[in-house]
Design a protein around this nucleic acid. Structure first.
Length: 345
DNA sequence: AAAGGATCCAACCGCCCCAGT
DNA sequence: AACTGGGGCGGTTGGATCCTT
C-alpha cells in the first residue's frame, strides 16, 4: 500500500539507483521541488512524491553533513533529548547538516546503548533502578573534573576534596528569586555557591547538629520549595561525600526553576520551611541528613554510611535528574543550547 | 570458508497538522 | 463545518553489511 498521494500511480520502491538520484538531483537543482507530488512526473521518476522528498532531504541535499557523529554532536543530541524526548526533527535542527532520520538512527544504534551501559534509562535519562545502588559506590581514588565553562557545576571527586566544588546557577533557573539575600557559611570551606540570588547559611550547633537556614524572601512557593530541596541536596553532597543523583528533572526546567519542586509539605504546616538538620553519627562523626516533613511523608532523603566509605541513598522517586549524568561529562552546554532550547520550544 | 546472528541505516508506513476549498 | 491534499514527523521494517562461531 502506497501513500495516499500516489496510491493511483505505479511506483517503484526500495533503494534508489544512481540513475534515479541523478534524475531527482538534476530536476530539483534546476527546477526546485515545488509541489513534491508533482516531482516524480516532472523528473521522470516512477516514485511517489513522498519518496522523492525523503530521498532529497535525507540523502541528496547538498548541505548534508556526512560521516560519523562527533562527540560534540553526540552530547548535543543527549542534552536535547533529555528535554524533548524523541522529537528527532527538533533535535536535528540543532545539528547543521544532520537529518532527523540520521539522528534517530544514531540514537537507536549507538547512544541508546551507551546510556544503558552507563546505567541510564535512555527514555528518561534516569538511573536504571537495578543500577542505582551500584552507581553510588566509587573508589576513593576516583578523580573526575568537569570544568567546561558551559557546565553549571564543577565536580571534584579527589579523595580529599569530594563533591560539588562550585556551581554557577544562572538566574534563569530561579526566575522568581528577586530579593534573596546572600548569607552563606559553608560546612566545607572550598565550596562556593556563586549565585548571588540564591543562598543559605549553615551553623554548627553545640550539640553537634548543623542548622541550615535558607535565606529566601521570595513569596513564591515553588521557588521556596526548590531552594529547600536544593539546599538539602547540596548539604547531603557536602556532608556525606556522595554523588547526589536523581535530583533536577526536566519538568522543573519547564516550570522555570530548573530544580525539582518538592511535593512535600513542611512539618506542622510551618510558613517558614527552611530548617534542615544534620546529625553527626556517634563516634564516627559521619553526618546524616534527615529532612522532616509531615508524618506521612517522612524520611524522603536517607543517607546510610557503610564500612567501605561508600554511601547508599534513597530518594523520592519523583526525582529523576541525575548528577551522575553530568559527572560523566555528558551534560554540558546548559547555558547555551539548553537555555536557548527552553525558549525555542 | 560458511552459516547464522547482530547491527546499521535507508526507506517506508501511518498518523497528524494545516491550508485551501 | 467538512473534506481533501500536501508536508512533516516518529515508529518501524527489511535488506545490506559486519561480526562471531
Amino acid at each position: 500500500m502506497g501513500h495516499h498521494c500516489c496510491s493511483k500511480q505505479k511506483v517503484k520502491r526500495g533503494l534508489w539507483s544512481p540513475e534515479e538520484d541523478e534524475k531527482l538531483m538534476r530536476h530539483i537543482t534546476t527546477q526546485g521541488h515545488g509541489c513534491w507530488s508533482s516531482v516524480p512526473k516532472l523528473a521522470g521518476l516512477q516514485r511517489c512524491g513522498k519518496s522523492c522528498r525523503l530521498r532529497w532531504i535525507n540523502y541528496l541535499r547538498p548541505d548534508l553533513r556526512r560521516g560519523s557523529f562527533t562527540e560534540q554532536e553526540e552530547r548535543t543530541i543527549i542534552d536535547i533529548h533529555r528535554i524533548l524526548g524523541n522529537r528527532w526533527a527538533q533535535i536535528a535542527k540543532h545539528l547543521p547538516g544532520r537529518t532527523d532520520n540520521e539522528v534517530k538512527n544514531f540514537w537507536n544504534s549507538c547512544i541508546k546503548k551507551k546510556l544503558i551501559a552507563q546505567g541510564l534509562d535512555p527514555n528518561t535519562h534516569n538511573l536504571l533502578k537495578n543500577k542505582s545502588n551500584n552507581s553510588t559506590k566509587k573508589s576513593n581514588n576516583y578523580t573526575h573534573h568537569i570544568q567546561d565553562s558551559t557546565s553549571i557545576f564543577t565536580i571534584d571527586h579527589t579523595s580529599t576534596n569530594k563533591g560539588i566544588t562550585s556551581m554557577d546557577l544562572k538566574s534563569t533557573f530561579f526566575p522568581y528569586c528577586d530579593n534573596i539575600t546572600y548569607n552563606h557559611t559553608p560546612i566545607v570551606p572550598n565550596i562556593e555557591y556563586q549565585n548571588p540570588t540564591f543562598s543559605w547559611s549553615e551553623q554548627i550547633n553545640h550539640n553537634n547538629t548543623v542548622t541550615t537556614t535558607l535565606q529566601s524572601q521570595t513569596s513564591d512557593q515553588r521557588t521556596r520549595d526548590s531552594l529547600l530541596d536544593f539546599t538539602s541536596c547540596c548539604l547531603m553532597e557536602n556532608a556525606a561525600n556522595i554523588n547526589v543523583s536523581s535530583y533536577i528533572n526536566e519538568n522543573s526546567m519547564w516550570n522555570g526553576t530548573g530544580l525539582e519542586p518538592t511535593t512535600l509539605n513542611p512539618i506542622n504546616g510551618q510558613e517558614e520551611q527552611e530548617m534542615q538538620v544534620v546529625q553527626l553519627q556517634g563516634d564516627q562523626e559521619f553526618p546524616i541528613i534527615k529532612t522532616k516533613f509531615c508524618d506521612d511523608q517522612e524520611d524522603v532523603y536517607k543517607v546510610v554510611h557503610d564500612h567501605d566509605q561508600t554511601v547508599e541513598k534513597t530518594f523520592n522517586d519523583s526525582s529523576n535528574f541525575d548528577f551522575e549524568f553530568m559527572d560523566s561529562g555528558l551534560y554540558t552546554n546548559v547555558n547555551s543550547s539548553m537555555d536557548q532550547l527552553s525558549w525555542d520550544c
